[in-house]
Write a protein that binds this DNA or RNA. Structure first.
Lengths: 175, 175
DNA sequence: TTTCTACAGTTCTAAAACAGAACTGTCAAT
DNA sequence: ATTGACAGTTCTGTTTTAGAACTGTAGAAA
């Protein structure tokens, strides 16, 4: 399987991995969430080669995760900012950081803390069920085929996810 | 930066990426959560080359994400099952799938649905604050240096995260 | 008893991706 | 006229990955 083929897989995880599933892309996105916007900013804070950085930024723009916006003419300069699609990656970032905080810290503790502006406290992200609000655990989740599963014709059921969309929107609304 | 160096970065995200930050590892873990346990199972459902599969499985075992357990002698055969550290990756997987469900579905809709056994409904994962329970959005999260930040000596503050650990454990307890 | 299949790898070669460094080009400041 | 900030592009050499074939154990089938 090549990189391009991932997006055609009937699996939301494979498709997402096609967008963010490499080392540098994830780190570039971390910088985006930490408010880095410019080429040199990414390059110096990550130590990524300029070649790869240019390529990854282009890819992220193509995929609608970043938007390339001019901030001066002569010479033309642009900055890269997260679109809504990009901001929606925040739960993934938080989940990744939280796992590292739990399993990969050294004796000194966490490199970064996260404060929730609304309540003012340092927090951990907790994943809950959109329907009942209870914290989720792997064992309590049962996976079953949906309308877009392999074998379902394209003409079929137009995704009856109205309720889920509505509920989970709380999560993105102010992102 | 090489793969090995990621784990030494003072950043939980970089360290986590050092473990799961490549295409195949993420897909292998998806299979683990879908109850695949054996070499041939991974190989045939993913189409990964046998060479890489063997290497990735070894790496995941080394890192304590999977455990290699014999299920027969002669010939020696093992299966790979998620450790607690591996099960704790579940929120990351759910967040990735959810983003794909939101932004990468075709006309047919979602390939997979997730049912919460406790409440019986198909759900979306929602990320909330461990302290106040409110859904999180990127803009409401303020990041600041913790005890393990770059520059902090190893001898310093032994991570005062007691409360956070306790609260977020609800999320993992039955995983 | 030779042959087939299931399983879990290992070994090989060619192709793709990546690292590291140097180069291009615009403009402002010295 | 030279330097430095910025945003890339181009080049060469190394590392990773893809794809296919091979190894080896053992039970079942011919």
């Amino acid at each position: 399987m090549k990189w391009g083929e991932l997006e055609d897989e009937p699996c939301s995880m494979a498709r997402t991995i096609g967008v963010i599933g490499d080392r540098w892309t994830l780190l570039i996105l971390r910088e985006c969430f930490l408010r880095t916007r410019r080429f040199e900013g990414f390059q110096s804070s990550l130590g990524i080669t300029r070649h790869l950085l240019a390529e990854r930024l282009k890819k992220l723009v193509r995929q609608g995760v970043l938007r390339r916006i001019p901030y001066q003419d002569s010479p033309k300069r642009h900055e890269y900012i997260l679109t809504q699609k990009g901001l929606d990656l925040h739960p993934i970032m938080m989940a990744i950081v939280h796992w590292g905080d739990t399993h990969m810290v050294d004796a000194r503790g966490r490199p970064l803390l996260h404060q929730h502006r609304k309540c003012g406290k340092d927090f951990d992200p907790v994943m809950v069920c959109s329907e009942c609000g209870e914290p989720l655990s792997a064992k309590e989740v049962h996976t079953h085929p949906g309308p877009g599963a392999r074998g379902t014709p394209v003409s079929a059921a137009p995704e009856k996810k109205a309720k889920r969309e509505t509920k989970s929107k709380t999560q993105r609304s102010a992102a």
